[in-house]
Nucleic acid binder design. Structure first.
Lengths: 333, 333
DNA sequence: CTAATCAACGTAAACGTTTACGTTAAAGGG
DNA sequence: CCCTTTAACGTAAACGTTTACGTTGATTAG
């Protein structure tokens, strides 16, 4: 059994109030008793019970994080940032995998509410009205990562998808490409779908390039397999393409795999630029030129915002800068 | 402010004991009052306070997980299994990133102790005496994943590294290779290092193949960059090699990258088999033949063991089966 | 010398539950 | 009709803290 503050008090011949005071170093005791208390704490190996503390302080020092997928490469990197910053501020993080599933999400929200987490980080998913109402019910800070809400006033941290996609396409153009296609997510996805398509279009239009709809292959998700099939059907439709912008690294890697199967050489025959800069972008063959999202910093920033909000300060939504990382998947023409 | 059990009791004209009883559906009330209570719970949107509950029940329904690295591909997959199973049993999981750092680990252990987690899962890291003493102090179930302890009686779940490495090497032999090298971790690592080297040696000896020490390149870690440099120095030393067993997928992918740079064709010039079967094994070019570790199931099993132990049952250490996944990185000779 | 101040504590209520135990009224047995 | 049993509750203690408030004795001001 763990010793309690009572045990410490008894052994040190003081009241529990005094022990509590030295524990939280508040004033109200002599140096001598402080030493005495600290000694017996050491002696008993006493560690305060955070549950009891949480009950009276109405504060658990725990924040909940909701991911659409925990095993995704992307989530892992964001989680890393979140975890580091949270711990640095004395907070723990509870991870929840919503699997993009309504029932699961709601269940998790309920659990997190019962556990009285101090804040919520909601990653890469759209906020429905139902979710928003639950957020409100919990009455704690919520921040969005890698997503945002147009309908509800929730602070977010992400990159500017439109701008980033523009930069990716622009790079291809500057390298002398004219026939550029895109492997995109769903145009109905207002976060990672349409903005990236728009960014691509913007760069193409600006450069006076063709803007046919058939140049962008839309996929239902951002995963490897979509990239694989997307590449094939896109190249089938437009064999003249010399470059492709893929809306995620996974899509890009999928495209590279498909190209390899069809003996299309990357980057000699067609150049590819990805989006995300996951760990695997560097490991790809050839190493992938891509748009880097600062996932670690995004997670850190989100935690910082939660903490600011907990302290009653304002927290402004943040657009973090993206960055073009040049590797070997793009060839100059 | 969240409504409490008191509010419910008052509004339903019963005592808090009664509300508590229907909440935990214990006997001791009429059907009518049950309905009444449930209605007012609904009406108030009452949700029990898990903190207060935890205080009296001495149970938080939370388990702590310690990883050497959260962003690692491997950890993500294990976490996924842990999270799923834990939630399925009504438990939450707190993630901790030890970064293989003693101070951080100790700090985390302290935090988890203060938070009174019900169990601990310790992943991919060696258990030092210091850690073990802290485990004992916490007096809660601990299970090891993807590691084990020879000195301390801690239950674990992992695959048989020696056997799995043997299987990988054996596959190469069966495909007709005779000159087989290995890119390994540190021989001082008693978990993922030496056993895999032994497995390789066993298969080689059994097949009557050369066993020179110089055939195994030892790296300080299992990461991509080590694979890259490891491949180069190994091939430099033994240009005659036609196949390599890499002790992790990251090492294997690193080797493939290095090969690509040096215009060595995989699998035509040299075959490679990896170890882990991470998501990226499938995405590699060429897709990687590898030994699959059932990470998801490992996580699930660990949680199941924790839960069994919490219920006073025994939990036996488990060796989960590995599996050879054949893709395109090995060529028949 | 008295009163006021203050450092150094102790007491007890509060946080929101669970649960052992007590109470009441109805039902059933003789 | 009385006693016992039991269903259906209510009361209060306990879980381990924090903290407002009270107390004490010494010190200081006047």
């Amino acid at each position: 059994m763990n010793p309690t503050i009572q045990d410490v008090a008894r052994l040190a011949n003081v009241s529990i109030a005094t022990v509590s005071r030295v524990l939280n170093n508040q004033p109200g005791y002599s140096e001598k008793t402080k030493q005495k208390v600290l000694e017996t704490i050491e002696e008993l190996g006493y560690q305060p019970n955070a549950i009891a503390r949480g009950l009276v302080n109405r504060k658990t020092s725990t924040i909940g994080v909701l991911f659409p997928s925990v095993s995704g490469l992307l989530s892992a990197e964001i989680l890393h940032g979140i975890e580091a910053k949270a711990h640095q501020h004395g907070n723990s993080v509870i991870v929840c995998n919503t699997a993009e599933n309504r029932e699961k999400t709601i269940k998790y929200l309920q659990v997190l509410r019962e556990k009285r987490v101090d804040g919520l980080i909601f990653v890469s998913e759209e906020v429905t009205e139902e979710y928003y109402e639950l957020f409100r019910g919990m009455d704690i800070p919520v921040v969005l990562v890698s997503t945002q809400s147009y309908q509800y006033p929730l602070p977010y941290v992400k990159v500017d998808d439109r701008h980033a996609a523009y930069a990716a396409t622009r790079h291809l153009i500057e390298e002398g490409h004219t026939k550029i296609g895109m492997i995109a997510g769903s145009p109905d996805d207002p976060i990672a779908g349409s903005p990236r398509i728009e960014g691509y279009r913007l760069a193409m239009r600006e450069a006076g390039r063709s803007l046919e709809d058939s140049l962008v292959e839309t996929c239902s998700s951002f995963q490897y397999n979509d990239g694989k099939s997307g590449f094939s059907s896109l190249m089938n439709r437009h064999p003249e393409l010399t470059a492709i912008f893929a809306a995620s690294d996974e899509l890009a890697i999928g495209a590279i795999s498909a190209a390899y199967k069809e003996s299309i050489r990357i980057p000699d025959d067609v150049s590819i630029v990805g989006y995300d800069n996951l760990l695997l972008a560097e490991m790809s063959v050839p190493p992938l030129t891509t748009i880097a999202q600062p996932f670690g910093r995004m997670g850190e920033r989100a935690v910082q915002m939660i903490i600011d909000l907990m302290n009653g300060e304002e927290a402004e939504s943040t657009i973090l800068p993206h960055e073009l990382v040049i590797r070997d998947s793009v060839k100059r023409r």
